[in-house]
């Protein structure tokens, strides 16, 4: 195991975990606002941060990933910064927030994914600051029905108990759970009825994430169910079962399907790369005589394939990668025809 340890990635992961731990200490004012009951959640989050950064750092070292990572940042901070920033923001809304490209795959998939994604993201946005002690609530001195919300130890705002704000603040995670459950059932339906999915899916990558999200959501809703309708009699069971499912999710986050949440923003860097390519010289296929990609992309791919150990250079000069996909198919067909022709029979 030690022989495959990636030292550079390990360094980044340790640094990220240390910075996160320090931010927890600072944000919770030396842990005075940290809720000890959430310690297990905190350690699971720190582990998840370590794993995510480690995997991400390893991922970035792959030649094709490194290409887009470097090019994306370089282009963003180039002389076209205003235009590229605008492009980035537009795609941030269109592709990451609204996820329009998933709707294009199918409207049902788009709806299910948006519900699931925003359910998960909102749950994280609420849970993480609470676990880190960055947000906490106190009863305003001298009252029994006004709460004070504190952010990073600073007083943020007051709200009356029993009001609209209190209802939504205390039930925000329930609303997230409902979104997640609606999304999960959309995907589960697809996974048990779509023949293509049934043929290619795996339990650990496709079904287990959905099962885990159902368990997290149901046990989370169970906490509210317990204190609203069961006078808290099942609190220990609900709290422990919810903690177990959430912690399992966090521990598995760097390894499983949900890592795509951290990979997806790479699409924005690719978009800048493609836009830069469109503005520059185009690669023209020697076979079709038509432009098929940016010259920059084709040249970069020659470099990337070379780094990966491939050598598509032609013996007479040039590269097989200079051909468009159609040109490559034609070159193969022509070579096959020539070989048949040389043998004296087109069929055999």
């Amino acid at each position: 195991m030690l022989s495959t340890l990636n030292i550079r990635a390990l360094g980044w992961a340790l640094l990220a975990s240390a910075l996160l731990a320090a931010s927890v200490v600072a944000g919770s004012r030396n842990l005075q606002n940290f809720d000890g009951a959430l310690a297990a959640y905190l350690f699971a989050t720190l582990f998840a941060a370590f794993g995510i950064v480690y995997r991400y750092a390893v991922w970035l070292q792959r030649p094709p990933t490194r290409l887009y990572w470097r090019a994306g940042w370089r282009l963003l901070f180039s002389r076209r910064f205003p235009a590229y920033l605008a492009e980035l923001l537009r795609r941030l809304v269109d592709e990451l927030a609204l996820q329009r490209f998933i709707w294009k795959r199918s409207a049902k998939r788009g709806l299910a994914h948006v519900l699931l994604a925003w359910g998960c993201l909102s749950a994280f946005a609420i849970t993480i600051p609470l676990v880190f002690g960055w947000i906490h609530f106190t009863l305003r001195a001298g009252t029994i029905d006004v709460y004070e919300a504190h952010l990073l130890g600073f007083h943020a705002f007051d709200f009356p108990l029993g009001g609209f704000v209190a209802l939504n603040l205390f039930h925000a995670l329930n609303w997230s759970s409902v979104l997640v459950l609606l999304g999960v059932f959309g995907f589960l339906r697809r996974r048990i009825t779509d023949a293509g999915q049934i043929a290619t899916q795996t339990f650990e990558m496709d079904l287990m994430p959905l099962v885990l999200l159902v368990l997290i959501s149901v046990t989370g809703l169970g906490l509210t169910w317990d204190y609203e309708l069961m006078q808290g009699r099942a609190h220990a069971f609900m709290a422990i079962s919810h903690a177990i499912t959430v912690i399992l999710f966090l521990l598995w986050l760097p390894f499983g399907k949900f890592f795509h949440v951290f990979q997806r923003p790479a699409q924005l860097g690719v978009a800048l790369y493609q836009r830069e390519g469109e503005a520059g010289a185009q690669a023209v296929c020697p076979h079709t005589g038509e432009a098929f990609a940016s010259r920059m992309h084709v040249e970069d791919l020659k470099q990337v394939t070379s780094e990966l150990g491939y050598d598509y250079r032609l013996t007479g000069g040039g590269s097989h990668l200079d051909l468009s996909p159609q040109g490559k198919r034609a070159a193969l067909a022509k070579a096959h025809l020539a070989a048949r022709n040389e043998s004296g029979a087109f069929f055999g």
Partner: peptide, 15 residues
């Protein structure tokens, strides 16, 4: 996971 970069489209030797 696919981020639609076209690397595979352009690098596949069979097109």
């Amino acid at each position: 996971r696919c981020i639609a970069c076209s690397n595979c489209v352009l690098a596949c030797p069979f097109g």
